[in-house]
Write a protein that binds this DNA or RNA. Structure first.
Lengths: 228, 228
DNA sequence: CGCGGCTGTCACGCGCGCGTCATGTGCGTG
DNA sequence: CACGCACATGACGCGCGCGTGACAGCCGCG
């Protein structure tokens, strides 16, 4: 992935902290202390996403974003606004200016990284058409189909719903009871062990493509979907 | 382009914010606070697209959309549902709403605008010339005719409407209820299984040309049109 | 008035896929 | 090291969803 992110923030301390953390999270970081410097960075390389402080010296963050929206080159680049808690009342205003999300200071680096990934996922168009992807696996919720490397694979209704839930909630353990709640309809009464069987069937479908390891057993707890 | 958009949303604040932003994005906005007012607006002018809140006082958004689908005038108008994150339950996917897309609150106006344009792009191509094509299959909405490799084929009224809808919305599963909403008219009360019969008849027509596989059954869900 | 085309409903039968059970296997624990 | 628990896996039967042919009403037409 290696998305490039431009951070525009006047406080040096915050700038360096955020930059360091996000680098560690695997992002390519570019930084700027104010709007003019931000323009400068953009002219060197158009980033995949911009983090912009609401309050900036001279030109405000909102104004900066507005200008970017006017420029053909940067119009499509998603923006996350950084706002102080005191300014939180203006959040609707912030969204109106054309930000895709906003994060209030102080924020946890983990949260910020999660928001960034969420926005990138949304704007890269994967989520917009009901598509879920994980590695070479793709699933379309609207057409009820699954592909591995663009080759469609046959999958039954229950396995489809199970896979859809897993791909929509990766990296997280779910007990059999939780899976029953989410994948089966709430009113039906089904044995918990039934989950095992459908997990098995899902693995069988994925095995020829070497993806069966993605559905992992967490002994004593339940199952988890992950590519590791 | 100047597409006209009807927004049906009960919260005044959200309504005004969205309306303002979308106006700035170049859309012609009409607004309504509930379903009856929505009907009113529609009777004044049929919009190019509707944004409908899932939760509305009195008539729910889903019911509102259902009614629109049954009416000849508004059947073809695409719909984007607005849902709160709390209602996002994995079982309630956009599919069940009969909507063309759905956006979960809180959403960024940019994202919403992008989705609107995406839906309009998808649905506008179908009526541009009155011609729909899929492989060697062609259909003219204005002359009510269907060709395979430029050879006209005989097709009944209902099969024609069904095929027209399928070709205009390929690669997407539709439940029997949705197909009834889109292909049949509002007055009639028809069994869901009737859809099966007309799907069968449509397949029979396409079979001599090897195209019957294009109408695919998705067990437990409904039908899908696709050339794969 | 009779005929043909078209529509919606029904009943029947088949086969898929779902859920359960019995048995096999491996991991963790005392 | 051995026991027990938790999960894997294969087999099996039943129910349900769907395909299909038949049929009755409806309408327009000759």
């Amino acid at each position: 992935m290696q998305a490039t992110i431009l951070l525009v923030e006047d406080e040096a301390e915050v700038r360096e902290m955020v930059s360091r953390v996000l680098s560690r999270e695997g992002f390519d970081m570019m930084t700027a202390a104010d709007a003019p410097e931000g323009q400068q960075r953009i002219s060197e390389q158009v980033p995949d996403l911009m983090l912009v402080d609401w309050m900036l010296p001279s030109t405000s963050g909102i104004e900066f974003v507005r200008r970017c929206r006017r420029d053909e080159l940067t119009r499509e680049v998603p923006v996350i606004m950084l706002t102080a808690r005191a300014e939180e009342g203006d959040r609707i205003h912030g969204l109106e200016t054309g930000a895709d999300d906003y994060v209030t200071k102080p924020f946890s680096p983990r949260e910020l990284a999660a928001r960034i990934r969420a926005v990138l996922r949304r704007t890269s168009g994967q989520d917009s058409e009901g598509m879920l992807t994980a590695g070479k696996l793709s699933l379309s919720t609207v057409s009820h189909r699954v592909w591995v490397d663009d080759a469609p694979i046959d999958i039954g209704p229950t396995e489809f719903r199970l896979l859809r839930f897993f791909m929509g909630h990766p990296e997280r353990v779910y007990t059999r009871a939780q899976l029953l709640d989410h994948v089966w309809s709430r009113e039906v009464l089904v044995e918990e062990r039934t989950v095992d069987v459908h997990v098995l069937r899902l693995r069988k479908l994925l095995r020829p493509h070497g993806l069966d390891a993605a559905v992992q057993t967490v002994r004593g707890v339940g199952y988890r979907f992950s590519l590791d």
